[in-house]
């Protein structure tokens, strides 16, 4: 019994740590004005690429801006973009997945073929075209990042619905006269939650990475907005000479991704009904 409790505690410690780190990020984003001495966009060209010092705890970037302030202010944009991107693809994807999995074969095939079309689009092409057409704002970036995540959620949801819809409890719910929406949201969705959360956490991490990839191609957020992916990408030229400029925003990004994963893992253990017994 005691060993078992210990195991449970260890299982949750990752999730708790993840949650704590994530909360710290959120707090940092909210308290950005109070936490920073320098303006994130204030540049002092004559003091660019300085190593960490008392005045600039994490050094300055290629335009002489305080890297710490930019990381802190950047957390707002990066977190917002991450949430919006995941929400965009998650909500649309799951809804389409439920629709596809639970309605008749005709709708199902229509949804899945639409997803196929979306999937066969090389994501980079979609991103370039969308950002070029809509302009380099946050909304177009969110759409560009989110849109190619949709099919993944749809396919995952539908795959699980397919294996769930024949199960006894869904059929029982149907037999008891539950309406389709009730079946979908009351019975099927909660049972899909585990893998969806795993998917969600993974996607939220890659979203920020995708932004850094887009910045690499010159399609990131508009300057001078502070955003981690853009900071990393802009500083890569100095990676071998002034590594601090790329290292600290990189660490901020990596720690967030790791925390998200630990949290998602713990939540999964907790949420998945089959793990609760």
């Amino acid at each position: 019994m005691k060993a078992n409790r210990l195991r449970t505690a260890r299982r949750h410690i990752g999730a708790v740590l993840g949650a704590v780190v994530l909360l710290m990020y959120v707090a940092t984003a909210l308290l950005a004005p109070a936490l920073t001495v320098h303006q994130p966009n204030a540049q002092n060209l004559m003091r660019n690429l300085e190593p960490p010092s008392r005045e600039y705890p994490l050094g300055t970037d290629e335009l002489g801006r305080d890297i710490l302030s930019r990381i802190i202010w950047g957390s707002r944009i990066s977190l917002l973009m991450m949430l919006a991107g995941v929400a965009f693809s998650g909500i649309i994807g799951v809804l389409l997945g439920l629709l596809g999995g639970l309605s008749g074969p005709r709708v199902e095939s229509l949804v899945m073929r639409a997803m196929d079309v979306l999937m066969v689009f090389p994501p980079i092409l979609l991103a370039i075209v969308l950002v070029t057409a809509l302009g380099r704002g946050l909304p177009s970036l969110v759409v560009a990042i989110g849109i190619h995540g949709i099919p993944q959620f749809t396919r995952l949801t539908r795959a699980m619905v397919m294996s769930l819809r024949e199960t006894a409890f869904v059929e029982a719910a149907r037999a008891a006269g539950a309406r389709p929406l009730e079946v979908a949201f009351g019975h099927v969705l909660p049972n899909c939650a585990g893998p969806l959360i795993v998917q969600g956490t993974l996607v939220s991490g890659t979203v920020v990475l995708t932004v850094s990839g887009l910045s690499f191609l010159g399609l990131g957020v508009q300057p001078p907005t502070a955003e981690w992916g853009t900071m990393i990408s802009a500083a890569r030229l100095h990676m071998y000479t002034y590594p601090h400029a790329v290292m600290y925003p990189g660490l901020a990004l990596m720690l967030l991704v790791i925390a998200l994963n630990a949290l998602g893992d713990g939540l999964r253990d907790f949420l998945d009904p089959r793990f609760r017994r």
């Binding site: 966009n41 540049q43 060209l45 290629e62 335009l63 010159g218 300057p223 001078p224 802009a234």
Partner: peptide
């Protein structure tokens, strides 16, 4: 180009 433009913007 990207860095020069940002500096000029500043």
């Amino acid at each position: 180009d990207y860095e020069i433009a940002q500096a000029v913007q500043g």
